[in-house]
Computed example of a mutant assay.
Amino acid sequence: MSVSIVRTVAELRARIEQWRHAGYRVGLVPTMGALHDGHLSLVRLAKTRADRVVVTLFVNPKQFNNADDLAAYPRSEAEDAGKLGAVGADLLFAPGLDEMYPQGFSTTVSVAGVSEGLCGAFRPGHFDGVATVVTKLLLQSQPDVAVFGEKDFQQLAVIRRLVADLNMPVTIVGGPIVREDGGLAMSSRNLRLTRGGRAAAPRLSAALFDAAKRIAAGEDVDSVIAQTKADILAAGFTEVEYLELRDAETLAPVAKPGQAARLLVAAWLDGVRLIDNVPVSAQIYA
């Protein structure tokens, strides 16, 4: 059974107002569609934190800095609606472009600090687009809790900073990365990999976990990162954009693992940009 769909902010707010009058807590799961088990795990997580869950589906052009990437992004609303109904989502908000960015729209939300470096260095304007659309979605729905995946770890940090800085009355929850059988982080972009790419892609996560374990055991961070980059390229990847150890909260570079460090990577395979990250601490890998 497919989930109920609304396409305007007015319809969305009317439905949520009914829930509020009934005393329900509201959860929000923003997505760009092409849903997989990683997305559905976020819906399940939201259902443990709220009585009613809204999933949004909007392919946000403002967070794409490459027109070809935007055009190639998979779109499957009908299939997505069926998946959401099966996991118990209560409402799908699927606005059109004019609903989100009507004529004359001229506001940009920008979050400094955590948006810089990593993906921010290679995707100019990307996190401004993320911050702008997430601000709109949070204001449109005014949820008690919103759930975002940890695979896009820098995005999650940007959203947490945004919500804290603007005193938004919403709890941001990070959902753990869901991986395929071979360890590859689930992503809508995985659909664009060739058969050979699908075979090689799991070696990215394998290299990342191995590097995290070695760093946690006390090996020199720079040496491990250099070797791991070489291993990823040897596996068939054409470019490693970055492989860095960062503080898990501030995303500031760190020279050694502390209480909460994260090893993050972005690499290209088959013309597809794949990202991943893992926690690094001696406790985890003991």
Results as ranks from 00 to 15, higher is better:
Ala67Trp: 01
Thr135Lys: 01
Leu12Ser: 07
Ser115Pro: 04
Leu70Ile: 01
Met168Gln: 07
Leu84Cys: 14
Tyr24Ile: 00
Ile5Phe: 01
Pro176Cys: 05
Leu264Ile: 15
Val54Met: 05
Gly129Leu: 06
Arg75Lys: 11
Leu118Gly: 09
Pro143Arg: 00
Lys136His: 02
Leu191Asp: 13
Leu184Lys: 06
Pro176Tyr: 01
Phe58Ser: 05
Glu79Thr: 03
Gly113Asp: 04
Pro95Leu: 06
Ile225Gln: 12
Thr31Val: 08
Ala14Arg: 15
Phe209Asp: 12
Arg13Ala: 15
Asp165Lys: 01
Ile275Cys: 08
Pro143Gln: 00
Gly117Met: 10
Arg160Gln: 15
Gln227Thr: 14
Arg52Leu: 08
Asp181Pro: 00
Val26Pro: 13
Leu92Arg: 13
Gly117Ala: 04
Gln103Met: 08
Ala266Pro: 10
Ser110His: 15
Asp152Cys: 12
Ala86Leu: 05
Leu138Gly: 11
Arg203Cys: 04
Val134Asp: 04
Ser41Asp: 13
Leu138Arg: 07
Thr8Ala: 06
Ala164Asn: 02
Leu35Lys: 11
Gln142Leu: 10
Asp165Cys: 00
Lys62Asn: 13
Leu193Val: 07
Val133Leu: 07
Ser141Pro: 04
Leu35Val: 06
Cys119Gln: 10
Leu28Asp: 05
Phe64Pro: 10
Gly149Asp: 01
Ala217Asn: 13
Asp152His: 10
Pro95Ala: 04
Leu166Ile: 09
Pro30Ala: 03
Gly125Glu: 05
Gly129Ala: 06
Leu204Pro: 09
Leu191Lys: 13
Leu40Trp: 15
Gly23Thr: 02
Asp270Pro: 09
Phe122His: 15
Val254Lys: 05
Val29Gly: 12
Leu263Ile: 09
Lys83Ser: 10
Val59Gly: 06
Lys62Ile: 01
Pro176Leu: 03
Arg13Phe: 03
Leu204Met: 15
Ala230His: 06
Val178Asp: 05
Ile177Asn: 02
Phe209Gly: 00
Gly196His: 14
Asn66Val: 15
Gln259Met: 01
Ala14Glu: 15
Gln259Cys: 00
Leu118Pro: 13
Arg246Gln: 07
Arg161Val: 09
Ser188Met: 00
Ala207Val: 09
Phe127Val: 14
Asp165Arg: 04
Val87Glu: 02
Thr107Ile: 12
Arg75Gly: 04
Leu97Val: 10
Leu42Trp: 14
Arg262Cys: 14
Glu244Lys: 11
Gln140Leu: 04
Leu35Ser: 05
Ala89Ile: 08
Tyr73Glu: 06
Glu239Ser: 10
Ala121Asn: 06
Gly129Ser: 10
Leu208Ile: 11
Leu204Phe: 08
Ala78Thr: 13
